[in-house]
């Protein structure tokens, strides 16, 4: 079982308190955009997901805790969480992900 850091509770909680909520930073087209969209674009929005092997930006929901949605970077090969961050923040850059990875390694070394 994972221990997932909720950025709102600011603590690590067991996985069973959380629900996976799909790919992060997925923006629903506005009504106007939808009316002008091609079938291919609509299909891309509806059905195509970033099924990445490696570090994946995704949403989680702390449904048995603070009930907030947040975003996370998780490695889908090792299932290890690299970082979690609050909703509404822009997608993490490679630099930010790298920094989080280093802090995590440092914490592990010191503990």
């Amino acid at each position: 079982m994972f221990e997932i850091h909720c950025p709102y509770c600011n603590e690590k909680r067991p996985e069973i308190e959380f629900a996976y909520a799909g790919e992060a930073h997925y923006v629903r087209p506005t009504a106007k955009e939808q009316s002008e969209m091609s079938d291919e674009d609509w299909s891309r929005y509806m059905f195509i997901r970033d099924n990445k092997r490696g570090e994946h930006a995704e949403r989680w929901w702390h449904n048995a805790g603070c009930n907030m949605f947040f975003n996370a970077i998780r490695n889908t090969v090792t299932d290890k969480f690299v970082m979690t961050y609050k909703m509404g923040l822009p997608p993490r850059t490679d630099k930010q992900i790298d920094a989080a990875r280093r802090t995590d390694a440092k914490e592990k070394a010191s503990s």
Partner: peptide, 13 residues
Amino acid sequence: DQYTSYSQRGPLH
């Protein structure tokens, strides 16, 4: 399981 993964294992719960 609930989340996407390539790890070929899952949680005990």
